[in-house]
């Protein structure tokens, strides 16, 4: 299963991912028309900084998703690709999902009074945020492969004094 992974050490805080996300969720999916759209399109991930470290915080599409479990109106559901998505018309704006999400990546559409979250760009092979990242701080990778790569890296660290 592919997941979006973040490498904070590579994040420059340029917010290209935020812009690409908002454009992808705009009417025409084009930067210039997105800028003219009213109300403006909303981003689904957030570049945050603390103590000089910057990183994008993005929905994990958790396999046991607290937001999905907390949604009482039947708005959030898991699609056939295992992405946690919305049935917008069912959202009642109770914000239980916001309460439940441990990552704080569900936001509020102030015009429509409904919850907004990452849909993993389900129509695209590679999510817009990942495609937009100029330093590859955001990567799309298979979870098992990512874990294996980390284990192999650990072997190098242990044996050849390579730093993580």
């Amino acid at each position: 299963m592919n997941q979006i992974f973040v490498k904070p050490e590579k994040c420059m805080g340029c917010r290209s991912c935020e812009i690409a996300c908002a454009v992808q969720h705009s009417k025409d999916k084009n930067l210039f028309s997105a800028m003219l759209q009213s109300p403006p399109p909303m981003k689904r991930l957030f570049v945050e900084a603390a103590d000089g470290i910057r990183m994008p915080v993005v929905c994990r599409h958790c396999e046991d998703a607290p937001c999905l479990n907390a949604c009482i109106s039947g708005c959030l559901y898991r699609d056939d690709k295992k992405f946690v998505r919305r049935r917008k018309e069912r959202c009642i704006g109770c914000w239980s999902c916001v309460m439940a999400c441990p990552f704080g990546v569900i936001s509020r559409d102030k015009e429509k009074h409904i919850a907004v979250k990452c849909d993993r760009c389900h129509k695209l092979d590679v999510p817009a945020c990942v495609s937009a990242c100029p330093t590859r701080a955001l990567v799309l990778a298979d979870v098992d492969r990512m874990a294996k790569e980390k284990r192999q890296r650990l072997v190098l660290v242990e044996t050849q004094a390579v730093t993580l």
Partner: peptide, 23 residues
């Protein structure tokens, strides 16, 4: 956070083939 490319001087908007960023 403010953009690290700008902070390190690694972006250029001097022409219309850009903007360019150096990683």
């Amino acid at each position: 956070p403010q953009c690290g490319f700008g902070e390190s001087g690694l972006c250029c908007r001097n022409c219309m083939q850009g903007p360019c960023r150096i990683s």
